[in-house]
Design a binder for these strands. Structure first.
Lengths: 201, 201
DNA sequence: TTGAATTAAACAAATGTTTAATAAAAAATT
DNA sequence: AATTTTTTATTAAACATTTGTTTAATTCAA
């Protein structure tokens, strides 16, 4: 029962996503979207009823992508905890370099749209293979016994926050954007090492 | 040469700050501000010329507070690196618990207002006593040799990011706000320990 | 009495949405 | 195959609110 999207619908969604990501919901006007997507203003409401509805669709899809990419790795059956850390770090950093506005957007618009969109999360992370492997390590006495929420939070913090605060980092180090991205690529290797040090006894 | 603020001015600024922090610049209207501060709509322009000007004043002050609190500790002459980590962690977490919208606001509105506001940062962090102490440790061979920007970034990441992503954490752990704050208070102790483990050879 | 502070009302521009007319495409009929 | 009918897509214009700002009159304080 997959819906068939028309070319116009796709054009609208693409433009809208790009604008919402860059400027947020309130600062993006329907006329911005119509201009960017080169469609007539009325078609936005014709296809998506309202700006709000269009936003919710985009928000949902974007957040879903954002989370699935993580959950995929976290639930892989074959890889070790160390390998999962390396993969997550690497994949996520690449993903955000390609779409730098993503984290701020997700984080920002999340506090206004809480419950409905966050359903996607349900148990997918805290009951993942990665957390199991962490708990096993605790049981075996190789990892310190701390609530795994800290473990999960720290991974995300070290990966995502630097992007969110990139204007600050760029200013502090007199970086340009390329140099900043280089720094983030460096972190692909460093973050897994740091996380391991943090959890080990 | 300190300017003398009238009661009305203060009322406007207080209400505006609260609203800007909660909803951001675009989603806050001048009528919201006039209602919240219980002043006549025209007084906003009478005292602050425009919504934009008012915002810039508030943005500047807020960001300045946000940074000074950090710089203060980072440049303390007497304390050790370990003590600085503990103090930063503790003070910052308390600060954000008291004003939970602060980080999202700063981070969010920063990418639109780059250079002018970020001047505040100039060298204050990367040339701080804390970074000196870190570099000393590297020279002495007790810390790994990595660009100190990672060190500084990691501290801020582990402290601030959990607040920014609090809706996600709250959902994952089925927390309420109090439980989330408890988790953050736990981190006051944990973060300095983690950071030390990360930098040690 | 003079200047500052406050107010209600008005203004122009922007914004989300709808309408009514037209064009294009698809389906039905001859 | 050709023509008519019906449905869908697109358009320009209009509409009703909202929003930031200004004006001109009034109140208050020095």
């Amino acid at each position: 029962m997959k819906k068939d999207y028309s070319e116009t619908e796709i054009k609208i969604k693409t433009a809208a996503k790009s604008l919402f990501l860059e400027k947020g919901y309130s600062a993006t006007t329907t006329r911005d979207i119509s201009k960017e997507s080169e469609i007539n203003l009325a078609l936005l409401n014709y296809y998506f009823t309202s700006k709000k509805k269009l936003f919710e669709i985009i928000m949902l899809e974007t957040f879903y992508d954002f989370i699935s990419k993580m959950v995929e790795v976290y639930n892989d059956e074959k890889s070790s905890l160390e390998e999962k850390l390396e993969l997550t770090s690497s994949k996520y950093i690449d993903m955000i370099i390609a779409e730098p506005h993503l984290p701020t957007f997700v984080v920002n618009e999340l506090k206004n749209n809480p419950s409905s969109i966050l359903k996607i999360l349900k148990g997918q992370i805290m009951e993942s293979k990665l957390v199991d492997q962490y708990n096993d390590g605790v049981k075996k006495g190789i990892y310190k016994k701390i609530d795994p929420i800290h473990f999960v939070t720290n991974i995300l913090s070290l990966i995502v926050f630097p992007f969110i605060s990139s204007p600050i980092i760029i200013k502090m180090k007199k970086f340009n954007k390329t140099e900043f991205n280089e720094m983030m690529k460096e972190r692909k290797k460093l973050i897994p090492e740091w996380i391991l040090k943090m959890i080990k006894k």
